[in-house]
Amino acid sequence: MSDGGASRVKVFISYSSADREFARFLDGSLAAAGVATFLAERDLKVGDSIPERIFGEIAAATSLIYIVSHASMRSPWVREELGVAKIRSMEGKGFGILPLLLDDVALPPSVSHIKYADFRDWRDATSYRKTMLELLRSLGGAPVLIGQRQILWYLDNLDALKFVKHALSVLHTRTDTAAGYFQWFNSWHWSVKYAAYDDDPPFLSAMDRLEELLAPVADGDQRLRALKECIEPAKKAVARGARDPGDRAESSRRIREVVEICARMLAILNDLEGDFEASVHAAIAARMDHP
């Protein structure tokens, strides 16, 4: 999306916690396109009045994305958010509800008349990208082909980017898994330390390498800027997560912070791969049409 179009869009993502992996990746893809989002697991702070904050964020949003799944159909919070969104949409001020189908389930009657985006095969990169582009068009954006300078940069640095993506995948997978196993103990920080500091590839080295790669090109592309802006928060999240705060609730918050930033960066990298491949193919086709 163009920077001007993106700046006017703010999306509230309504989802069940059971679908948080998809919600995190979706959030990363929207961030790469310059779309502002509200994601409860990240944006709700200790001390917030949950109903007041959620209703206020829906009121401030231009759209609500409703992730439709078996879990969200059973969630009282999701039903409440959808109800508030329906009231907003009836005000006739351009507010939209965008259903995203995640499971084989019938849409609720209140939104069954709305065309949905089919993300049931979202783990397949090609399918995810195709449906994501449809969603971005619904939000007023369009795919932007990448310039020659960025294409050459991408081709020159494919191996290094694969190294970075692998490091992120290792940290995300092991930290997310460890969070589940260690939720009954006071040692969550060890899962971050193990995956980020004591493993191969070393996460912090990968972040330093990514920072070097992006330095000459990030300012020329919204998606590359979004990726660059994640690097410092990722380093800080890992540093905090690897320290034992001596408090179980704080350990839980820190581990989620690491998982969330990794998911966002992986989503942006996945989108970049698709964008660059599409741009390369378009450039090749143009050259063949006009040799």
Rank of each mutant, 00 (worst) to 15 (best):
residue 1 M to Y: 05
residue 2 S to E: 06
residue 3 D to H: 07
residue 3 D to N: 08
residue 4 G to L: 09
residue 10 K to F: 07
residue 13 I to G: 00
residue 15 Y to W: 06
residue 19 D to L: 10
residue 23 A to W: 01
residue 25 F to G: 11
residue 27 D to Q: 09
residue 30 L to S: 02
residue 34 G to S: 02
residue 34 G to P: 01
residue 40 A to W: 00
residue 42 R to G: 08
residue 45 K to A: 10
residue 49 S to K: 14
residue 52 E to H: 11
residue 53 R to Y: 05
residue 63 S to R: 03
residue 64 L to Q: 01
residue 65 I to V: 15
residue 69 S to Y: 01
residue 75 S to C: 12
residue 81 E to V: 03
residue 83 G to K: 12
residue 85 A to V: 06
residue 87 I to G: 01
residue 87 I to N: 13
residue 88 R to C: 01
residue 89 S to N: 14
residue 91 E to I: 07
residue 91 E to G: 12
residue 92 G to A: 12
residue 94 G to F: 00
residue 97 I to W: 04
residue 97 I to G: 10
residue 100 L to S: 06
residue 104 D to S: 09
residue 105 V to R: 01
residue 118 D to Y: 01
residue 121 D to G: 03
residue 124 D to A: 11
residue 124 D to Y: 01
residue 125 A to N: 03
residue 126 T to N: 12
residue 127 S to R: 10
residue 128 Y to K: 07
residue 132 M to G: 00
residue 135 L to H: 10
residue 136 L to A: 03
residue 142 A to E: 11
residue 147 G to Y: 00
residue 151 I to V: 10
residue 152 L to E: 14
residue 157 N to Y: 10
residue 167 A to M: 07
residue 170 V to D: 03
residue 174 R to W: 04
residue 177 T to W: 09
residue 179 A to H: 10
residue 180 G to C: 03
residue 186 N to K: 11
residue 191 S to E: 05
residue 192 V to L: 12
residue 196 A to F: 00
residue 204 L to H: 11
residue 208 D to E: 14
residue 209 R to H: 08
residue 211 E to Y: 02
residue 216 P to V: 14
residue 216 P to Q: 05
residue 221 D to Q: 06
residue 222 Q to K: 03
residue 225 R to E: 08
residue 228 K to G: 00
residue 234 A to Q: 10
residue 234 A to V: 00
residue 242 A to H: 01
residue 242 A to G: 13
residue 247 D to M: 07
residue 247 D to L: 03
residue 248 R to F: 10
residue 263 A to E: 05
residue 265 M to F: 04
residue 266 L to E: 11
residue 273 E to C: 00
residue 279 S to Y: 12
residue 282 A to P: 11
residue 283 A to Q: 14
residue 291 P to R: 08
